[in-house]
């Protein structure tokens, strides 16, 4: 029935804006991680060597700040798109298509963990699986902490006008720990869950092309697929 009414092989999943924003995040995140960790671990010889190759501490610091601003502008673009989506396009931000966490995600995670131990079937995801939601919110919330703590260290003169001096030191700890979390999460969890999964390996192209194969759509987002078919009928 599906194949007759719909001979297409690919479906549109991501808007071009989100694909561009994802690439902006990739590029800036990589540069931020490289420059930040080289500066933090400057005590080791190899880090000092690479910093001198890249132009010294001053340039590296400037690159770090430039990329931070660039990346945060991406976040702001996304937030303004959310407003546009809600106010101008009059679309719903909640509901089954939403990226907001819901009760279903906890159920899905529980079911998935049961499935891992061979007790039951894998959960049927909607438009976003709970892992995709975690990926999204890790960036969204992580960038707020990184942004605030980074600004505190960038403009300590202004922030000590409001907060006690030792808040700058706390910001430095948070900034580093959050950076470790972000890099180790993106590097292992996000990469494996998207690219290394046996059905997808070697690479997930949906976020770059915006298109998803019909087969993968039906397997990975069965609830959304079902809803789309029902709406057509």
């Amino acid at each position: 029935m599906d194949t007759n009414s719909n001979p297409r092989k690919h479906y549109q999943r991501f808007h071009v804006l989100h694909r561009i924003l994802h690439i902006i995040i990739i590029v800036n995140f990589t540069f931020l991680a490289i420059t930040g960790f080289l500066l933090y671990f400057s005590g080791f010889g190899w880090a000092g060597f690479w910093v001198s190759v890249m132009g010294g501490a001053g340039i590296l610091g400037r690159v770090h700040r430039f990329c931070a601003v660039f990346l945060y502008m991406g976040i702001l673009t996304h937030v303004s798109w959310l407003f546009y989506y809600k106010i101008v396009l009059k679309q719903k931000l909640s509901g089954p298509d939403s990226i907001l966490p819901g009760k279903k995600d906890i159920k899905d995670m529980y079911q998935n963990l049961r499935y891992v131990f061979n007790k039951g079937t894998p959960p049927l995801f909607d438009r976003y699986s709970y892992l995709q939601k975690v990926d999204y919110w890790a960036v969204m919330l992580g960038m707020q902490t990184m942004g605030i703590t980074g600004l505190m260290m960038w403009f300590p003169e202004a922030f000590t006008g409001i907060f006690p001096g030792y808040f700058i030191n706390i910001a430095a700890h948070f900034h580093f720990h959050e950076a470790v979390l972000a890099v180790m999460y993106i590097g292992l969890v996000h990469m494996s869950d998207t690219h290394l999964v046996p059905d997808i390996f070697p690479m997930e192209k949906t976020i770059f092309t915006g298109k998803i194969e019909k087969k993968r759509f039906m397997e990975d987002h069965p609830e959304e697929w079902k809803r789309q078919q029902m709406m057509k009928d």
Partner: peptide, 9 residues
């Protein structure tokens, strides 16, 4: 630098 600035450790 504000007076509190000197309290950065």
């Amino acid at each position: 630098a504000t007076p509190e600035f000197a309290n950065i450790i």
